[in-house]
Simulated scan of single mutants.
Amino acid sequence: MLPYQTLQEAETSLGRNLTFAETLWFKYSAQKSDYILYCHNTLFLFVFYTIAPLPFVFIEFMQFKNIGKFKIQKKVKNSLSDMFRCYKTVMQTFVLAVGPLQLFSYPVIEWIGIRTGLPLPSGSELFWQLLVYIVVEDYANYWLHRLLHCKWGYEKIHRVHHEYTAPIGFAAPYAHWAEVLILGFASFLGPLMVPGHMITFWLWMILRQVEAIETHSGYEFPWSPAKYIPFYGGAKYHDYHHYVGGKSQSNFASVFTYCDYIYGTDKGYRYQKQVLGKLTDKLRSNGEENGDAYHTSVQDLKYE
């Protein structure tokens, strides 16, 4: 809770006028405890995992010809009931896993010093802290995800997430409750190492959710701004991991691809991409369409 009763007190303490954003923050947060502000994170989970996948659901059922060609696994069709079942299961997992986590993790958040007061973080502070969070989460997630693909981890926990061999947006957090907690730890590591403002923490959690939904969307759009991010994996990269399923020892990356490249866990994907590229060139030279090339080529490959 802010230690000021009025805007004038806040401005006197800072020695300047509040910015527009700081004024909004004061009016919203002044009478709310830090714990209530932290609990907004759970609200964001429910809201964004409800709304963000809806455009992909709309595209799936409207079957726009010009957009449908960007679907990665074209032969897979998901019914509305299947999608709703997935959504309902995810919400139940959030209630059972994220709710208790919220209660037990707040003392840690308070201890490390994630602040809620004024001033708000600058644009450069936001950028660099979010960059640190992304890199830290990506590296930790790589190893935790890879660990979940060991025999025991896959059979007992991770196989739930791989029920979707063709991922959809609603399935981004579709997982065993233990996996939600395990991989959720990777998301908390950055803020634990470099604590910032609660606004930064919120933005990080929202950004992570949106990225996970995009990666599991099942569509690879050429106009996606994420394509311009260096070493970004994207939907097609992660789709390969799901398509191979339990046998997959490839493409463990959360956001970036550098860990897979450094540790040699993208060899199968690179080999598939090379073969698919040759197949595409051959089909084009013969004047044929390449709609099912992904599936016909991938089934003949031996994955490492």
Score class of each variant (00 low, 15 high):
Tyr154Ala: 01
Phe252His: 04
Tyr219Ala: 00
Trp204Asp: 13
Gln209Ile: 15
Ala52Gly: 02
Val210Gly: 02
Val90Ile: 15
Ile114Pro: 06
Ile67Ala: 09
Leu183Asn: 02
Gly264Arg: 07
Phe48His: 02
Tyr263Trp: 10
Ala97Trp: 00
Trp111Asp: 07
Thr42His: 05
Leu183Ala: 01
Ala178Ser: 09
Glu211Phe: 07
Tyr261Glu: 14
Lys156Gly: 03
Tyr261His: 14
Asp292Tyr: 06
Ala253His: 01
Gly268His: 00
Ala21Pro: 14
Phe221Tyr: 03
Phe58Asn: 03
Trp202Thr: 03
His40Ile: 06
Trp143Ile: 10
Val95Pro: 09
Leu131Gln: 03
Leu103Gly: 01
Asp266Cys: 12
Phe58Val: 15
Glu60Leu: 09
Trp202Val: 09
Glu11His: 02
Leu37Met: 11
Ile134Ala: 15
Pro225Trp: 02
Ala235Thr: 08
Ala175Asp: 04
Ala52Thr: 12
Ser13Asp: 15
Ala178Gly: 10
Phe46Ala: 08
Asp34Arg: 08
Gln249Asn: 08
Gln5Met: 07
Thr89Asn: 13
Asp292Ala: 04
Glu137Ala: 12
Tyr4Asp: 11
Ser285Thr: 03
His241Gly: 01
Thr89Glu: 15
Cys259Leu: 12
Leu181Glu: 06
Phe56Val: 05
Lys77Gly: 08
Ile229His: 01
Thr265Asn: 12
Asn286Ile: 00
Leu7Ser: 07
Phe46Gln: 01
Val255Cys: 02
Tyr269Asn: 08
Pro119Lys: 01
Met205Ser: 12
Leu181Pro: 05
Thr265Gln: 05
Gly190Glu: 10
Pro53Arg: 01
Ser124Glu: 14
Ile109Ala: 02
Thr296Ser: 09
Val108Ser: 02
Phe58Leu: 13
Tyr228Gln: 12
Ile134Met: 13
Glu163Lys: 14
Asp82Trp: 10
Lys247His: 06
Pro119Arg: 05
Phe188Tyr: 11
Ser224Asp: 12
Cys259Met: 13
Val132Arg: 04
Glu289Phe: 00
Gly99Pro: 06
Val57Pro: 04
Ile213Leu: 11
Ala140Glu: 13
Tyr237Gly: 00
Phe70Thr: 04
Leu301Asp: 04
Gly245Val: 06
Lys302Gln: 14
Ala166Leu: 14
Tyr133Asp: 06
Thr12Ile: 12
Lys27Asn: 13
Asn17Met: 14
Pro195Ala: 04
